[in-house]
Design a protein around this nucleic acid. Structure first.
Lengths: 150, 150
DNA sequence: ACTAATTAAGATAAAATACTCTTAAAACTA
DNA sequence: TAGTTTTAAGAGTATTTTATCTTAATTAGT
């Protein structure tokens, strides 16, 4: 799989928040139900994004999470790197350390291009723009239809 | 990671065999040492490729494995699918079942292109051609320099 | 102050992946 | 036939990823 499950959950949650009002905090409980992700597992993942400064949280009644200023400006790529790390965009396809133009593996040149196209896909537009498009084009964020962009 | 470790090991072994004389069997022991892969683990992976008809094995003294007729004609993509399965080339980037043009996730269109470019990278040339190029351009198959194409 | 709602953090469990070890089966040598 | 070499197969272990459970800390409302 290209992205870990944690990462996919994090992206879905990020797009969820990007589709909502920026200033409000949204409850993890509701979010996990709408997005069909285990509550506790989602909590862990978003804690990581909060620690990374991509989201902000607030405890207590009516608490929740929202995108930080940094998060609002960010792309899916930023979220992927925060969760899965930068490996996908830096490492050799055959797992050889220090693979570069000097000491290349047989896939080196084409993998450089391919991984760049993955990176481009993830950073083409911001979360907010994807969410806007999601509303217009009725994209999906869940297997069933629990979630709607409103 | 794009490919599992098993898969990367399988690709390295496939290229190793592709660089050798087609008709000979090559010992797993030597192969695992030259490619710096655990002997038993490599054995398991190549058993899978043998079961899939991409390689052939022969027991006893001077036994080993070699590419089958099918294997000789195959590409890295065939090896990847035999080991990791076809998921990478069929599944939604957000893990949504049945993601398609009708019920698309926000990444659907660009992911179709990107995963196609991954597939193209892996099926552009045959194993034999990669091995030939490996000899000419002195590509690497290991972290250290144990392996040489001869 | 007390209670309830909510995220944070840590411990635990389950599943998948990566790796190792042991025994069996096949094939060669003599 | 006996002994050796090699792959096959199955069991077992370790690590990582995924998921759950429990307790603590923070905040709001009363």
């Amino acid at each position: 799989m290209l992205l870990s499950k944690s990462c996919v959950y994090g992206l879905r949650a990020s797009l969820y928040l990007a589709s909502k009002r920026d200033s409000d905090y949204y409850s993890l409980k509701e979010m996990s139900e709408e997005l069909d992700i285990s509550f506790h597992f989602l909590t862990k993942i978003l804690q990581q994004l909060t620690a990374d400064g991509l989201m902000e949280s607030y405890k207590g009644p009516n608490g929740g999470v929202r995108l930080s200023e940094k998060g609002k400006k960010s792309t899916l790529l930023d979220m992927v790197i925060a969760i899965d790390g930068p490996g996908l965009f830096t490492q050799c396809a055959l797992g050889l350390p220090g693979c570069g133009s000097q000491e290349a593996c047989p896939l080196h040149d084409s993998w450089i291009d391919t991984r760049q196209s993955i990176e481009n896909m993830l950073k083409r537009t911001t979360l907010k723009e994807i969410a806007k498009e999601g509303k217009e084009k009725h994209f999906r964020l869940t297997a069933e239809g629990q979630f709607s962009w409103q």
